[in-house]
Structure formats: structure tokens, C-alpha cells
């Protein structure tokens, strides 16, 4: 009788890392593996090169909920950028989401030229919300100070992005409000500014 699985489905596609590594010569050192969900998500290539493998014991009762793990040291390339330090995968090795790249495809897979784009320069300050701005302007008037458009510093989540220095013109504008929609079809019948 065929098995019938009951439960939530997931978006994984592939094998566990042990299934791949355990069947290769010398545990596949030097070969390429990819996480399928990551590959599907981004256009740039993301892959791992196996550097070192440490086996882990087989679980006593192996089942779909208790798959064999393996400890693997990898060179990580994410979206075309190679990590200078190797990474270790152990706790996530049970996920049935890994795929081996055949040897003849490796070279083609790793080929990636970053497209030449203008660097985005983000603004360091932005306007305040309308009510707050009005209150501040009134405060200035009451105190008798010269009325200047109040601005606030933007707090960005990361430190990687390029923020406009003094006198530099940012290429991106951040404003209070809806901004530029990603797809106009979502705002059908709505008057946009």
C-alpha cells in the first residue's frame, strides 16, 4: 500500500545534505551544492563549495521527522558574492532542499558578471510627518526663531548602503507617503499623486 502523507506541505525541493555527501567519493570535497529555495529566489548565483565533511551518527529511529545530519564546512557564495570565511552547516543539514551541481555544469554555473549599475546614494535626512512638522514650525514662531524646514536623520537598518555626504546629491528620495508603487496594477482606479 502506498504511503499517504498528512500535514502541511513545504516548499523544499531536493535531498538532505547527507544524502548527497554520503554517496559521493571523498564525501564530495570540492563539489558544489545549492539550496534550492535560495536559487529560485534570486537571479544571481548562490552556491556552496564543500571544503570538509564530518559525519554524524545515524539516528536510532530514522524517519521523515528524524533525518540524518552531517557537519559540513563550506565556502559560501551568496548572490554572486563569495564569503571570505567558510561557513559550517550542521543543524540545517537535515532539510531536504539541497541539490548537487554536476561536474560539467560547475563552470557554467559559477560564471557571473555583476551588472554595471549606478550606485544608489541614499539621503541622510528626510522630511517630518505633516502634523509634527506643523507643530515644530509653530514652536519656532513662538520662540521667535527663524523658520526653517525641520528635517530628521534617517535611521537605516544596515550599514552597507552608501549614504549621501554633505553637499552630495542622493539618487534616491525618501518621503513621507505612499512613494512610487512597485506595480501600478495594484492601484487601479485610485488617484495617485
Amino acid at each position: 500500500m502506498p504511503y499517504k502523507y498528512i500535514g502541511r506541505t513545504h516548499s523544499f525541493k531536493g535531498k538532505t545534505l547527507w544524502e548527497i555527501v554520503g554517496n559521493l567519493k571523498n564525501f564530495g570535497v570540492g563539489r558544489l551544492v545549492v539550496r534550492n529555495t535560495v536559487v529560485e529566489r534570486y537571479p544571481e548565483p548562490s552556491y556552496y563549495r564543500i571544503l570538509k565533511v564530518e559525519t554524524l551518527p545515524q539516528p536510532k529511529e530514522e524517519s521523515l521527522d528524524n533525518l540524518r545530519k552531517v557537519k559540513v564546512l563550506l565556502e559560501k557564495t551568496f548572490r554572486g558574492v563569495t564569503n571570505p570565511k567558510p561557513v559550517c552547516i550542521e543543524s540545517a543539514s537535515y532539510k531536504t532542499d539541497y541539490r548537487l551541481i554536476p561536474k560539467d555544469e560547475e563552470q557554467r554555473y559559477c560564471q557571473y558578471k555583476a551588472p554595471v549599475t549606478n550606485e544608489k546614494i541614499f539621503p541622510s535626512t528626510m522630511e517630518l510627518p505633516p502634523l509634527m512638522k506643523e507643530v515644530l514650525i509653530r514652536e519656532m514662531k513662538i520662540k521667535g526663531e527663524p523658520v526653517v524646514e525641520p528635517v530628521m536623520d534617517i535611521v537605516y537598518n544596515d550599514k552597507k548602503r552608501r549614504i549621501a555626504k554633505e553637499g552630495e546629491k542622493p539618487t534616491i528620495e525618501i518621503k513621507i507617503g505612499l512613494g512610487k508603487p512597485a506595480a501600478l496594477s495594484l492601484y487601479k482606479g485610485i488617484k495617485l499623486e
Binding site: M126, L128, P129, M132, M152, D153, I154, V155, Y156, N157, I174, I176
Partner: peptide, 9 residues
Amino acid sequence: TQMKSIKRY
């Protein structure tokens, strides 16, 4: 981003 900026301000 905006909320964080406002809070910091």
C-alpha cells in the same frame, strides 16, 4: 525606516 527615524528624532 520612517518610524525608527521619527522615534530617534
